[in-house]
Amino acid sequence: MSAFIYNNSNNNNSMRLCVMGDGGVGKTSITIQFISNHFVNCYDPTIEDLYRKQCLIDDQVYMLDILDTAGQDELNAIRNHWIKSCEGFILVYSVTSRSSFDQIQSFLDQIKFLKSEKVPIIMIANKSDLDDERQVTYQEGENFANRFGMSFMEVSAKYKLNIDEVFNQIAQHCVKRRCDHIYINKSIRNKNSIFKKFNQKLNNTFHSIC
């Protein structure tokens, strides 16, 4: 519990998100489009990149740390620690690749194994502008997402379609989850007189977040 207090007091305005998906689906393009409003046209595989951007959510300014990850299975060794350190996840597949859609399940399984509690996850389908090459329909994606309790959107990094909406939505889910956690911990802590001196700090944190 003390670790939670420590982290909270230092990182109450910062959250880390993780963008995951098969290789070549456009994870980096989506991230850079959100960060810099620019479409990167050249393809070169990512190993591990970290971006930052300030974002206004519910009248509060947050610093988003966005972790852009490698899609190749061979770099799976470091994937576990991405999952452990992040609190929100964006799973990406491409509408032009059924294989990338089929692999969303394995990413979900990994997150479920490594996160004991429920975390916000959003699934997005990229390259929605390439309709003539489409291999996965909107309905298929939405059905899959609903079955696992995820939000779903179709986006286009090229034309910046729904990009900001994705990051705003996942950030809001994370903020809501944080508020729920703080409330639960606060009510538990009030029963224990030993930790009375922390109540004031928690109250301040609670107000500043919510």
Partner: peptide, 19 residues
């Protein structure tokens, strides 16, 4: 693979076998 830029970028039987 239609786009030469994403040849061997995804995970498939071919990429895993060579690996």
């Amino acid at each position: 693979t239609n786009n030469p830029d994403i040849i061997f970028r995804g995970n498939s039987l071919a990429t895993k076998s060579v690996d």
